[in-house]
């Protein structure tokens, strides 16, 4: 199995480990047993190239993380688990798109830029989430409006990009 595929598997498995630890802590054995489902999805997606499998793994992992949050397990572990599932999903899909005989130099350049972007996105996202948990801000109404405008602007930009 190529290193990229192993790497793509390490992230979601680490995420599932977070789920397992959290569910053991609160002794939710049924939820713990349910971890088998995303585990199988991730393992199969590492073995076979089928785009539906990583998506299934991602959805199941997020569903279990959400369930964990609702039943009151450690939220940080759940957020980290979802973020790692996202990384696994991204890496597996990226691995699927790579042609078989790509030159090593091209591949390393592509891998570098992809890993860098992914790491940056995950780091920013996790930092923001952790900051959100640590800091309880009372935002004035005007700032909220500005944030909504920013979100709308981002969506418009996204739509514009899709149009092209």
């Amino acid at each position: 199995m190529p290193f990229r595929r192993i790497l793509a598997l390490i992230f979601p498995l680490a995420g599932l480990a977070c789920l397992v630890i959290a569910f053991i802590q609160v002794q939710q054995w049924l939820a713990l047993a349910a971890v088998i489902l995303p585990l199988l999805a991730w393992l199969f997606s590492a073995r076979w190239t089928y785009r539906g499998l990583p998506l299934a793994g991602l959805l199941l992992s997020i569903a279990l993380s959400g369930l964990g949050l609702l039943i009151g397990v450690a939220p940080v572990l759940m957020i980290i688990s979802a973020a790692l599932a996202l990384a696994g999903w991204d890496l597996l899909l990226w691995h699927y798109t790579l042609p078989a005989d790509l030159p090593a130099a091209t591949l390393s350049r592509l891998a570098y830029s992809h890993y860098r972007s992914l790491a940056l996105a995950l780091a920013l996202g996790l930092l923001a989430a952790l900051a959100g948990r640590l800091l309880r801000l009372q935002l004035p109404f005007g700032v909220l409006i500005l944030l909504v405008i920013l979100a709308l602007f981002s969506l418009e930009r996204l739509w514009h990009s899709l149009g092209h």
Binding site: S65, A82, L118
Partner: peptide
């Protein structure tokens, strides 16, 4: 939990 996805 949506924040890492939003950052991505």
């Amino acid at each position: 939990m949506a924040l890492p996805f939003l950052a991505y």
